[in-house]
Deep mutational scan, measured.
Amino acid sequence: NNDALSPAIRRLLAEWNLDASAIKGTGVGGRLTREDVEKHLAKA
C-alpha cells in the first residue's frame, strides 16, 4: 500500500524502478525503511 510509504521511500523506489511489494519492510508496522530498500538493491 503506497499510503504507508514516506515521500523519501516513494522517490527512492521510483528512482530505481522498484516495486514496493517485492521488498519486506522492517519498520514500524512493516513499513519500508531506507535500509530495507538499500539491502534489496545490494542483493540485486
Rank of each mutant, 00 (worst) to 15 (best):
A44H: 14
V37L: 10
A20N: 03
A8C: 10
G25I: 04
V28Y: 09
D3T: 10
S6D: 15
A4P: 13
A42L: 13
E38S: 06
G27P: 02
K24I: 14
L18H: 03
T33V: 05
N17S: 10
R10M: 13
D36E: 01
L5G: 04
K43G: 11
T33M: 05
V37P: 00
A22M: 14
A42G: 09
G30R: 02
L41V: 11
V28G: 06
E35F: 08
L12A: 03
I23P: 00
G30H: 04
A42Q: 14
L12E: 02
I23H: 00
P7K: 08
K43H: 12
D3N: 10
E35I: 07
V37S: 00
A22S: 12
V28Q: 11
D3M: 10
D36M: 02
A4D: 14
G30A: 03
L13Q: 01
N17L: 06
N17Y: 07
L13T: 01
R10L: 15
R34K: 13
L41G: 03
A14T: 11
E35R: 10
K24L: 12
R11Y: 12
L18P: 01
R11E: 15
D19S: 10
L41H: 08
A8V: 08
K24Y: 06
G29T: 04
G27A: 04
K43T: 13
R10N: 09
T26P: 01
K39F: 09
P7A: 14
E38M: 14
A14I: 10
V28A: 13
K39Q: 13
A8L: 08
E38L: 15
L32T: 02
V28H: 11
V28S: 09
G25E: 02
I9H: 01
T33R: 06
R31W: 05
T26F: 03
A22R: 07
A42M: 10
L5S: 04
P7V: 10
I9G: 00
G27M: 02
K24G: 05
A44V: 15
R11V: 14
E15S: 08
A22K: 12
A22P: 03
D19N: 08
S6Q: 05
D19Q: 07
S6Y: 04
D36F: 01
R31A: 15
L32C: 04
D19T: 09
I23K: 00
G30L: 02
N17G: 15
A22L: 13
R11G: 09
H40S: 04
E38A: 07
R31V: 12
I9R: 00
N1R: 04
